[in-house]
Amino acid sequence: MEDVVISVLHRTMVAGTPLLLGTVGEVICERSGILNLGVEGVMSVGAVVAFVVTYTTGNPWLALIAAILAGMIISLIHAFASITLMANQVVSGLALTMIGLGLSGMVGKPYVGKPLAVKMNDFAIPWLSDIPFVGPLLFKQSPFFYMAILLALAAWFFLERTLAGIKVRSTGENPRATETQGVNVTLVRYICVITGGAFSAMAGAHLSTSYSKSWIEGMTAGRGWIVIALTIFALWNPGKAIFGSFLFGGVFVLQYLLQPVGISPNFLAMLPYIATLLILFGMGLRDRRRLNAPAQLGEPYKRGER
């Protein structure tokens, strides 16, 4: 019985990892005031780039770096359109998703159905992994899991406890006042959008080189959109994102748990999406002021305008 519980919880952690990476990236991005709806597309690009590089070089770490770079580059589209050209962020993000999904489908077509010979192997942390129950659960995971947790904690520390983090937050709250303090709002926002892209691409790399070891078109399956909902659920706080992501990881695992019971697999596949709606519904019942959303989220900032 204990083995089953550990196995289920272990898979929950695995399923929650890409959600956590994506959510932390989106939190950083939205805290600077830019809404990025392109997560799904960037994730997909990260997945395909990581897969192709692992397939050709056999080195998943090199693949991860390549995926991150690709994610940063493609996020520049959204950054340029929404920051420099002050375009509508909803539409620009959607366009980024279309381009990302399209490019990844095009680049990945020759690789569909080919399994990876090597993958990002799980890594057992010495000593810690020997602790009963907690050890196999938290310390025998893929490197992506450790990175996700560490990056989430680092992002929390950065945003809440450092001067640079305050600059990012105030850029999202009141860019005009921030600019008068000598902060380059445009630069801060560019960096945050690109950082968000790097995180989303990592999430994608996890899907194709660790979670499933293969590439299929549409393998991100709406995770990029769930990430955007999780950002709200986490109240734009990377620390709370850890809880939310693994909660949703549990919903993904629930699908496989309930399948033998005889419930339609298609109905079970709806669960993450229904859960997303329910969670947002729960958030909607709360007092809006306590939601803590960045005040200028989604609003373009025009320099020198009064």
Binding site: G41, A95, M98, I99, L101, G102, L103, S104, G105, M106
Partner: peptide, 9 residues
Amino acid sequence: ATVQIVNGI
């Protein structure tokens, strides 16, 4: 997916 790229761009 080609059409998607064209549309996105």
